[in-house]
């Protein structure tokens, strides 16, 4: 994207921190809630230096600027504090709650989908729920079965929830700013493997609109729709394939709900081939949803079967070789593309 805005290198994690800081400066009703997000509660000497700022350090430094009334350490009580975030959102705050790992949604799903997501509809449009739930996804660090899932497909399924999944530092900043300013419940999925990824990030406070996919690489031969870390994996595959004369178009939907159907369909109309790459489990998933979209609305564009490259229908394994086999690799993506050329 060509833009006049100045940029500089930040990591994905730093981009998230920057978006939180900008949003908190511009709106005093924005508060953060989560387990250890400030850190060092009741340990005075930690407040100004070594407080955790979350287990990944993403919220580090914010309590020093905004104080403990706006950066709230919660007990390990997901139903309690996620529900409180929903209640606070319905009554005038803009909470950004951190669900440390998405796998913990089982502890608080009622508050997310039965309360927050349905409230506006059940109340006849008279209420709004401007809450953001930031959460970590992704395999790759041997965090095993209960700290490694993706599960954004679950939330994409549910009306009343917006599902936002950045794959780059710039997208993380811009999408998080839009999420916090949004008047609906937003699930914001940060891939733990990407926190250290560096990239050019715009200065300033501009958000990236939802429902606008980003074409991460142009190509005429095959469309690869990839989500979160799978964008990086697909770009690596695209380089391998380019050496073989296959030009891959890599599309990052960036938000699964809402979904930019038009960009996907336009690309498939050009390339006539679709591969969807998704680290989430394969059944009733974002991948099957996008495949169904193209089968339904873009069938006549297709010159080959739609292919999916996904994690298997298993929990995430612990042992490194098993985990490596679980996550779609550039090689697997490239091989799948070759099959339909």
């Amino acid at each position: 994207m060509v833009t006049a805005t100045a940029t500089r290198q930040l990591t994905y994690g730093q981009a998230v921190t920057e978006a939180l800081r900008i949003a908190m400066r511009e709106d005093p009703t924005v508060i953060l809630m989560g387990e250890d997000i400030a850190g060092g509660a009741m340990v005075d000497h930690l407040v100004n230096d070594d407080a955790w700022g979350g287990p990944m350090g993403v919220t580090k430094g914010l309590v020093q600027e905004f104080g403990r009334d706006r950066v709230l350490d919660t007990p390990i009580t997901e139903a309690g504090f996620i529900g409180a975030a929903v209640g606070a959102a319905a009554t005038g705050l803009r909470p950004v709650a951190e669900l440390m790992f998405v796998d913990f949604f089982g502890c608080c799903m009622d508050q997310i989908f039965d309360q927050g997501a349905k409230l506006r509809y059940m109340f006849g449009g008279k209420a709004r729920c401007p809450v953001v739930i930031r959460t970590q996804i992704g395999a790759g660090v041997s965090a095993a079965g209960q700290h490694s899932g993706c599960h954004y497909s679950v939330f994409t399924h549910m009306p009343g929830i917006k599902a936002v999944i950045p794959s780059t530092p710039a997208d993380a900043k811009g999408l998080l700013l839009s999420a916090i300013r949004d008047d609906d419940l937003v699930m914001f999925f940060e891939n733990k493997v990407l926190y250290g990824m560096k990239g050019e990030v715009p200065e300033g406070d501009e958000g990236i609109p939802f429902g606008v996919a980003d074409i991460k690489r142009d190509g005429d031969d095959v469309t690869v729709v990839a989500i979160s870390r799978m964008v990086t994996q697909s770009l690596l595959a695209a380089e391998q394939l380019a050496a073989e004369g296959i030009e891959v178009e890599v599309i990052d939907p960036r938000t699964l709900s809402p979904l930019d159907e038009e960009t996907i369909l336009t690309s498939v109309a050009k390339t006539h081939r679709l591969v969807v790459v998704d680290e989430d489990n394969p059944r009733c998933s974002a991948a099957t949803d996008i495949a169904a979209l193209v089968a339904d609305k873009g069938f006549d564009f297709l010159d080959a079967p739609i292919k999916l490259v996904t994690a298997p229908h298993t929990p995430v394994p612990f042992s490194p070789p098993l985990e490596a086999a679980y996550v779609p690799s550039p090689e697997r993506i490239a091989e799948t593309v070759r099959q339909i050329m």
């Binding site: 529900g83 929903v86 606070a88």
Partner: peptide, 15 residues
Amino acid sequence: GGIPLACGAALTAKT
């Protein structure tokens, strides 16, 4: 279901 929501409404009032 409403118990955490009430805590949130109280958090708004306090904040």
